[in-house]
Amino acid sequence: MQLYNKLSAKERAILIDEAGTDRLTLSFYKYAHIGNIQIFRNHLFIHWDTLEVLGRIYVAKEGINAQLSVPAPNFEEFKKHLDSISFLENVRLNIAREQDAKSFLKLKVKIRNKIVADGLNDTTFDVTNKGVHVDAQKFNKLIEDPNTVLVDMRNHYESEIGHFKGAVTPDVDTFRDSLDIIEEDLKDHKEDKKLVMYCTGGIRCEKASAYYKHKGFKNVFQLEGGIIEYARQVETQGLENKFLGKNFVFDHRRAERITEDVISSCHQCGKPCDTHVNCENEACHLLFIQCEECAKALERCCSTECMEINRLPDEEQKALRKGKGNSNKIFKKGRSEALKYKK
């Protein structure tokens, strides 16, 4: 029985083109106490593989975090299967605003220690003891209150291209880093301030809300469904949109545009730009912001050094990479010294 993906991304892309079927990009998460995660993982793969579901799914004892692409004709059957799992019945599905049939090209269901890496060794707090969820309308009212502190729980490269007006945007590389920073900054206001958090789809805020409640914060709120659901509600209900720019997403699209505001700059020339790319040099693959002019001049690379390497024949590039792991620049997300106008 097949329990792992066997097709390459290139092979899958060809099959998607040949099928000519619309696909839906969506995401969901759920904190829950799961017993045998290996059985649960295999159960998901077997059922979703038959439905041609693609995506990146993490399962752990604390729950599930899923980002998926589902063939539109198979969506109802996919939803039926979700509802057959007790703790996933009627789980909120965040449907992407901008659809791309190739947002995911493999089905990966992976077992993790946690569905959100938090670096915490504290097992004394319950991740299901979450803060108050608020919809877009209540969120807009809350953040107008002078006693509210609005915090972006995402990383610097995400908030750089889009964030809510007036939000605190910690200059961090990881979710774990932001937890301590926020607690330290607000340690004297655990009872008199309203802590309101948001992230892409809600999963990081939900864990953070449980953590901050555990740490003694009395008024903890999170934007239900994150930026994805907020944008949908703003559009369908005609609400004021307090978000600026793009929402970073973790698939091949890299971002969804929420408003026409461009709040970031090309990391190479400094011109207004909010397009994330990965360096074409496979040995680098750095994530950074690049405008079309710089992309043309540097052949979609982050530096002249990478451009020169990328011009070499494939066999020479492979020889240079042999025995070496990718540079840790890939994890710096736009902080490379090669970028003159990095944040």
Rank of each mutant, 00 (worst) to 15 (best):
N5H: 00
S8Q: 03
I14V: 15
E18I: 11
A19Y: 02
T25L: 11
L26H: 02
L26F: 04
Y29G: 04
I34H: 04
I37F: 02
I37M: 03
I37Q: 02
R41V: 01
L44C: 09
F45I: 01
H47D: 03
T50W: 01
E52A: 13
R56T: 07
R56C: 00
K61H: 14
N65W: 03
A66H: 01
S69Q: 04
P71I: 10
P73G: 10
F75T: 06
F75V: 08
E77Q: 15
K80W: 00
H81Y: 15
L82M: 08
S84I: 02
I85L: 11
S86L: 01
E89T: 05
R92E: 13
L93G: 04
I95P: 03
I95R: 13
A96P: 07
E98P: 00
K102H: 13
K106A: 00
K108T: 04
V116Y: 05
G119R: 05
L120S: 15
N121E: 12
T123A: 10
D126F: 07
V127A: 08
G131C: 11
G131N: 09
H133Y: 14
V134E: 06
N140M: 07
K141D: 14
E144T: 06
N147V: 00
V151T: 11
R154Q: 12
H156I: 11
K165L: 12
V172I: 15
D173S: 15
T174L: 12
T174Q: 12
D185K: 15
L186T: 10
E191K: 11
C199H: 06
C199S: 10
G202T: 06
I203H: 01
I203L: 07
R204V: 13
E206L: 09
K207R: 15
S209Y: 07
A210E: 02
A210F: 08
H214Y: 12
K218Y: 05
K218M: 06
F221E: 05
F221C: 08
L223P: 05
G226C: 10
I227Y: 06
I228A: 14
E229A: 12
Y230P: 04
A231Y: 01
L239Q: 02
L239K: 02
N241Q: 00
R253V: 11
R254D: 00
A255P: 00
I263S: 10
I263H: 07
Q268V: 15
C273M: 08
D274W: 03
T275S: 03
V277K: 10
V277H: 01
C284G: 12
L286P: 03
L286C: 13
I289A: 06
C291E: 00
E292L: 04
C302R: 10
S303N: 11
S303C: 12
I309L: 14
P313N: 14
D314W: 08
D314K: 15
E315S: 14
A319L: 12
K324E: 10
F331H: 14
F331E: 14
F331Q: 14
K332W: 06
G334Y: 05
G334N: 09
S336N: 09
L339I: 10
L339A: 08
